[in-house]
């Protein structure tokens, strides 16, 4: 575990905290894509199946359980909380699951390190995580006033991916057998998706104005 990886994980954890804070404190999930949240839940469930058969560290296990539990909690608020569910922009959140899930599944079946059930699911989760933010980005383009908590949530998610890339570069040079092009390519694609967002995020921050993404 290096500092970049830890900072990435903390950024990821903080993003979830910011989202839960927004939902619980403001009783609103306006501007948040349920599709992205459900895709993340699918990512975590398919990737962390190894909780049942392989142990890496207490840190890893706690983080995995935390990410699954918080993802389920967020979905529960957005779908079933009487107050929160009324603030969900259902008509705007129109991205189709199949457009993302199907290609990722096909790709995982074709491009993987080992053709086993758990390995294919793990690879699927890597591909799906790369594109799971798309419904959220599309929803933000359609939302006129993006609130600060939503903007910070997405910024923290982007920071998490960026820090993981630095972590991979560090590990490439410090660990002799650390080669995983499949994860790296997906990670770079995922981070690139945030480039546009970060451009407007820093611009809004510099001029102290509200974030607005051009349609």
């Amino acid at each position: 575990m290096n500092l970049f990886r830890l900072a990435g994980d903390m950024s990821h954890l903080l993003s979830v905290c910011v989202l839960l804070l927004k939902i619980r404190a403001t009783k609103s999930c306006r501007g948040i894509s349920l599709k992205t949240q459900e895709l993340y839940a699918l990512v975590f469930v398919t990737r962390y199946l190894d909780l049942f058969y392989s142990y890496i560290s207490l840190y890893n296990s706690i983080m995995k359980v935390t990410f699954i539990a918080t993802a389920v909690s967020i979905i529960r608020y957005m779908r079933f909380d009487k107050v929160v569910k009324q603030t969900y922009d259902k008509e705007q959140d129109t991205f189709r699951y199949a457009f993302l899930v199907a290609p990722c599944l096909v790709l995982a079946l074709v491009l993987n390190h080992r053709f086993t059930f758990t390995e294919v699911l793990w690879t699927f989760s890597i591909y799906l995580e790369a594109v799971a933010i798309l419904p959220q980005l599309v929803l933000m383009q359609r939302t006129q006033n993006i609130d600060n908590l939503t903007a910070n949530y997405v910024a923290l998610l982007g920071a998490y991916r960026g820090l993981y890339i630095v972590n991979w570069i560090y590990r490439y040079f410090t660990e002799p057998h650390y080669r995983q092009w499949l994860v790296w390519i997906s990670g770079v694609v995922q981070t690139a998706l945030y480039a546009d967002f970060f451009y407007f995020y820093t611009k809004a921050w510099k001029h102290n104005t509200r974030l607005q993404l051009p349609a």
């Binding site: 990886r5 983080m63 990410f67 080669r179 995983q180």
Partner: peptide, 10 residues
């Protein structure tokens, strides 16, 4: 590619 190396991240 060693499996262990790729599965220790979150």
């Amino acid at each position: 590619v060693s499996k262990g190396a790729t599965h220790d991240e979150l």
